[in-house]
Simulated scan of single mutants.
Amino acid sequence: MHLFRLLAPLALFLATVPVQAQPPEEAGWWDNDWWFEGVLPAPQTLAVRTEWVEVSGEDVDIPALVARPDDGKRYPAVLFQHGRRGLDELIQLHVKRLAARGFVVLAPDIYSARFVEKFPIEHDYALEQDVGVALDALLERTDISSSRACLYSHTRGGYYTLKVAVTQQRQERDVACYVSYYPHMQDPNAPEPMQVYRYAPEADELTIPTLIFIGEEEQYQRRRGIEMAVQSLQEKGRPARLVVYPGVGRGFDFRPDSVRTFADDLAAKDAIWRATRFMRRHLQ
């Protein structure tokens, strides 16, 4: 009994010590300037103008939102690919927030082009070609400063852009990096076991720098595939990083104010800041 009384406080202390998988320096969030000197990052914010353009494909015309700094200067190119939600008002705000960081952003509305309703279940493979056409249109613009573009996406858009990079063989030649928020890393038409226990084989063929964001409360069947894909890339020595935000789930980058939380906002601000630094580095 006396031994139990002596060891109980120690056991309680050990039970409350958080488990840290890796040192903060290796986890990617440690900042010496902040910790030792008190320096906080001051992200660049530019006034943004937007316009709708039409991208001509082989059999469809694709409406696309273009957002860019409103100063006439040239900026690096980013292709923003929406997911199952489509390019609605909430997602258009994300496009503008990204452009304010100093990018020319082209966001094709591939669902409207083919009269696909929001939140489709099945995947139309023609959409992958439409994303490739939109990438061509972006790289042909005269107001971009980079010869390549970064692919930036969320949800099912992560699969569309993965296919453009790998299957269409655009990575390294036309694409400098891959950024995605909680991407669907599997063919949406694949059977259920493939959705839960596997990821798209194309993910293993990514060679460009890759940055993926998810929330700690991400759906299990989605998180599993993302984590396996990133782990596989890292084991191959590929430049891939996964950032996991505590206290948030899917949609933290666009959830509306009626349901938005402080954690959502912290994650969204941090993610776009990290994505900005990442893309600038690879679009130089």
Rank of each mutant, 00 (worst) to 15 (best):
2 H>L: 12
3 L>H: 12
11 A>T: 14
11 A>C: 11
17 V>Q: 10
20 Q>L: 12
21 A>K: 03
27 A>N: 10
28 G>I: 12
29 W>Q: 14
32 N>W: 15
35 W>Y: 11
42 A>E: 13
45 T>K: 04
45 T>C: 03
48 V>S: 06
51 E>W: 08
51 E>S: 10
54 E>R: 05
56 S>P: 00
57 G>C: 08
60 V>F: 07
61 D>T: 15
67 A>M: 08
70 D>E: 12
72 G>N: 08
72 G>Q: 04
76 P>R: 03
79 L>Q: 02
82 H>L: 00
85 R>G: 15
86 G>A: 09
87 L>V: 05
92 Q>L: 08
93 L>I: 09
96 K>F: 03
100 A>C: 05
100 A>G: 13
103 F>G: 08
104 V>C: 06
106 L>G: 02
107 A>K: 00
112 S>E: 07
115 F>L: 11
116 V>A: 03
117 E>D: 12
124 D>C: 04
130 D>G: 03
132 G>E: 08
138 L>G: 05
142 T>E: 14
146 S>W: 09
147 S>T: 15
152 Y>H: 13
153 S>K: 04
157 G>T: 10
161 T>G: 06
162 L>P: 06
164 V>M: 07
167 T>V: 15
167 T>E: 14
178 Y>N: 04
178 Y>L: 15
187 D>V: 10
195 Q>W: 14
195 Q>I: 07
198 R>C: 15
198 R>I: 12
199 Y>P: 01
199 Y>N: 02
200 A>S: 13
201 P>K: 05
202 E>V: 01
203 A>G: 04
205 E>P: 01
219 Q>G: 08
225 G>I: 02
229 A>M: 14
238 R>W: 01
240 A>E: 09
244 V>T: 15
245 Y>L: 06
250 R>H: 14
253 D>E: 15
254 F>C: 02
260 R>M: 08
263 A>E: 14
265 D>C: 06
269 K>T: 11
270 D>P: 03
272 I>H: 02
274 R>C: 01
276 T>R: 00
279 M>R: 04
280 R>E: 15
282 H>R: 02
